[in-house]
Simulated scan of single mutants.
Amino acid sequence: MPKQSPAGPEPGADPAPERGSGRVQSVERTFELLEAMSDLGGTAGLSQLAARLALPLPTIHRLVRTLVDLGYVRQQPSREYALGPRLMRLGEHASQLLGTWAMPYLRELVDEIGESANLAMLDGDHVVYTAQVPGVHAMRMFTEVGRRAQVHCTAVGKAMLALMPPEQADMIVAGSVMHPQTGHTIITPDGFRAELDRVREAGYAVDNEEQEIGVRCVAVAVPGRAPRAAVSISGPSPRMSDALIQQAVPLLRRAAEGVAGELEPLRPGTAQAG
C-alpha cells in the first residue's frame, strides 16, 4: 500500500521556522511586534500591525492576545492595543544598563572636550538623564541621573525629535505644555517646528540658555530606527563657544554611533558594511 505524503500547511498558516538557525520564530515575531507598536507611537490596531510586519491577521491576533494575558500589552476602549505597564520595569533596568554601557563613550568626550558629557533617553514628552561624566573644570555642569526635563528646552530632546518623522514629533509636542524655563525658551509649536528643521539640516541640536541661564549644551541623537537616546556636552556659556561646539559635534557623532552599537548590536547572519 503506497505511503501517503504528509499534508501541506493549511492556507494562511505561518510558514515553518528555519531549522538550524538557532532562533525561535515566535519569540522573534513577538519582539518585532512590540518594536512595531513602539514605532507607531505605542498604540496600534491589529490591521496596522499586520500590514507593518507582513504577517497574517490571525498570527498578529494570537501574539497580541498572549501579550495582553501577560500584561505587556493592553486593549484600549478604542479596541486598539497599547504597550502595557509590565514593560516599564524592563525599561527601567534597560535604561540603567544603557547608562553603564555608555560611560566609556562619555568619558572619552570629557577627555577630549573637558566639559560634562551626558546621556539622555526619551520618555513621552520628557527626557530622562541616564548617565553623566562630570567635566574637568572646577566650575562645571552637574545633572543628577534620573532627572527629567521637557523636550522643547533641551538639546537632547530636540536632537531626538528631529530624527523622527515630523508627524510623530508633532504628536509628542502636542501633548506637551511648553513652559518657558528662561527668556530664551521656544514656547510655540511653529517656532519649535522651525527649530527642528534647523536641527535636521545641521545634524545636531543646541540649547542656547533655553533651560538655564548661563548654560549651553550641544547634542547628537543616537542613530537607529526609532531614536530614543542622545548624547550631549554642556557647560557655562562663556566656555561653550560656537568654536567649541563645532569641535564637539564630530566627537558627539562618534560617541552616538558607539552607543548605537550597544543598543542594536549586529544581528546573527547579517554582514557589516565596510
Rank of each mutant, 00 (worst) to 15 (best):
K3F: 09
Q4P: 05
A7T: 09
G12P: 12
G12T: 09
G12R: 14
A13D: 08
D14N: 12
P15H: 13
G22C: 03
Q25N: 09
E28R: 15
L33K: 02
L33G: 02
E35N: 09
A36G: 07
M37I: 14
M37E: 02
S38F: 03
S38V: 06
D39L: 14
L40F: 03
G41F: 05
G42E: 04
T43L: 07
S47H: 11
T59E: 05
L63H: 01
L63Y: 00
V64C: 15
L70W: 15
V73G: 05
V73D: 01
Q76M: 14
E80N: 15
G84F: 03
P85G: 08
G91A: 13
H93A: 15
L97V: 15
Y105K: 13
L109W: 00
L109A: 04
D111C: 08
S116M: 14
S116E: 09
N118K: 10
M121K: 01
M121F: 00
D123R: 08
D123A: 12
H126S: 05
V128W: 01
T130D: 04
A131Q: 08
A131Y: 02
V133I: 13
V133E: 02
P134Y: 02
G135T: 05
F142P: 07
V145C: 04
V145W: 02
V145A: 02
R148T: 01
Q150P: 05
A155F: 00
G157Q: 01
M160N: 03
L161S: 01
L163T: 04
P165A: 14
V173M: 12
M178P: 06
Q181T: 04
Q181L: 06
G183Y: 02
H184V: 08
H184K: 15
I186H: 01
I187A: 05
T188I: 11
G191H: 08
A194R: 12
E195T: 05
D197K: 14
R198I: 04
R198W: 01
R198A: 05
R198T: 10
R198N: 13
R198M: 05
V199G: 03
G203Y: 03
A205F: 00
V206W: 00
N208T: 08
N208F: 02
V215A: 03
A221H: 01
A221Y: 00
G224H: 04
A226M: 14
A229E: 02
S237M: 07
S237I: 11
P238E: 05
R239T: 06
M240H: 06
M240K: 09
L244H: 01
I245V: 15
Q246W: 00
P250R: 14
E257D: 15
V259K: 08
L263W: 04
L263K: 09
E264L: 08
G269N: 12
A271P: 07
A271M: 10
Q272R: 12
G274F: 08
